[in-house]
Design a protein around this nucleic acid. Sequence first.
DNA 1: AAGTGGTCTAGACCACTCT
DNA 2: GAGTGGTCTAGACCACTTG
Lengths: 244, 244
Amino acid sequence: MKPGPDFPAFQPLYRQIKGLITQSLMSGEWRPGEPIPSEIELAGRYSVSQGTVRKAVSELAEERVLVRQQGRGTFVASHAEERSQFPFLRITPDDAELKELTAELLDLKRVRDAASARLLGLNAGSSVFLLTRILRLNDTPVCYEEVRLPPPRLKGLTAAVVRQHECMLYSMYETRFGMRVLHAEERLKAVGAPREVSALLQVPAGTPMLQIERIAFSYRHEPAELRHCLCDTRLHHYRNSITG
Amino acid sequence: MKPGPDFPAFQPLYRQIKGLITQSLMSGEWRPGEPIPSEIELAGRYSVSQGTVRKAVSELAEERVLVRQQGRGTFVASHAEERSQFPFLRITPDDAELKELTAELLDLKRVRDAASARLLGLNAGSSVFLLTRILRLNDTPVCYEEVRLPPPRLKGLTAAVVRQHECMLYSMYETRFGMRVLHAEERLKAVGAPREVSALLQVPAGTPMLQIERIAFSYRHEPAELRHCLCDTRLHHYRNSITG
DNA sequence: AAGTGGTCTAGACCACTCT
DNA sequence: GAGTGGTCTAGACCACTTG
C-alpha cells in the first residue's frame, strides 16, 4: 500500500504502523513477554514493506516497548522477565554492590485525595489506593514509600495480592492487571526526616533525606502510579545518567 | 565497497563508518556548529551506500552528537548554539518558570588532588584546575559548585576567560578549548549544609541540601570535568525522567 | 533446514531550504 | 532549480535460534 490519506492523521507511514502496533499492545492482543508476529507477517497484515515495519518496530524497541532478539523474534517488553525486578529504582549502596532487595508492605487502604485522583486521571471525588512500604537494600532499611494507584485499573487489589508478588509492584501491575509501566517523571529534593519515617528507618529525626516524587505512565502517557519516597542517603546514593 | 576485513574491528559496516565520523569530529575536522558533508559525499568518501551512511549518522544524531536539519544538512551539535546555555542543569524552581540563570565566579586556582587527577585521566601527581562559583536562578542563589578540570585540555584558562564566557562553562569548553561535553554521570545525596556554603547561599547551617556529584565525558568517554554541587531545594527541585 | 531479525544496497519519490 | 535530508520499496545476503 502506498502512503495515502486512508489513515487518520498526516504522519509518515511507519509512524502510522507504530500507532497500530501500539494499539494492539494496549488492547492486550500481544501481552508482555509474548512474541509479536514476525516483520514479514506484520508487513503483510498492514500491506507495507518489511522495511517500513522494521522502522516502526525499531522505534518501539528503542523506547523499550518491544525487545528484539535475533533469530528468535520480537517480544513485548516485560518487567516480570527482566533481571532487575525494580526497574525504576535508582538508589544504590555507596561502596557495596546491590545484591538483595526486599520490600516490607506496611499498609494498603483506600483514601480520598482529590489532588492524587486528578493526577491519576480520575474524578476529584474518586478514592485511590494508598500503599505504604519499606525497601531494604542488602537487608538495610533505606526507603519509605507511599504509592497511590487508580482503583479502576487495579480491580481486586489487596495486601495478599501484593504479598503474592513479593512486593514487585511493576511486575504485579503487568502480570496481574495488564498495566505496563513505561516511563516516569521524578522530582527530587533534600528534606529533614519526619518523625514517623525516622522511626521506621532507624534514622535520627531531622536527618537530611532524599525525597523522590514520581509519576509513572503507561502506553500513550496514561498515568499509572504516584509514588512518594524518602531515602536515607547516608550510605546510599541516587545515580543518574545525563545526555546533553 | 562490500563489508570486508579492511577495517580495524569486526563490526557492522555502519558502525565502522560511525567510528570514522567520530574520529573526524575528535580531530576537529568538523567543529561544533558546522555542517558535516552531505550523506552522498560521505558515501563516496567511505565507498559505501547512502543508506549505510544514513544509519551511522542516525545513531550519532540520536546520541545528540550530530543534529540533522531537513533541507539544510547535518551539523555538529554545539552547546554554544542551543537555547539553554546550561544543558546539564536539572534544577528548577518549584512553582515558577526558570527565566534567568546567572553564575558568579568565586575563585579559580590550581590545586593538587590525586583522586581528582586520576578521575580526570591524569597522573596522580598532576595539578587540576579548581573553579568555584554560585548559581542564581531568577536572581536567587541556589547552588554552590566546585568544578575540577584537566589543565592539559584547557591551556590558558583564567578567571578572565571564564568571565568572558559569562560562566557558560560547557559553551566555553567547546568554543575556546575544543572540548565538547556529551554525557555525564551523577550521584545524588541529601546532606546537611556545611557552614561555609550556608553563608554563601543564605541557608541556615545544617539545612538539608541536595548534593550532586558529576563526572562529565567527551567523545569516546574521555573524562572532561568533575563537578561537586550543593543545592538549596527548599523552593527548587531536581527533575528527572526515567525510561524503564 | 527453515524461520527470524540484522545488514547492505540501489533506486524512487517527497518535503524542505536556499539562491 | 538544485541540493539536502526523510520516506518507502525490493531484493540480497548474513547471523542466530530452533527443531
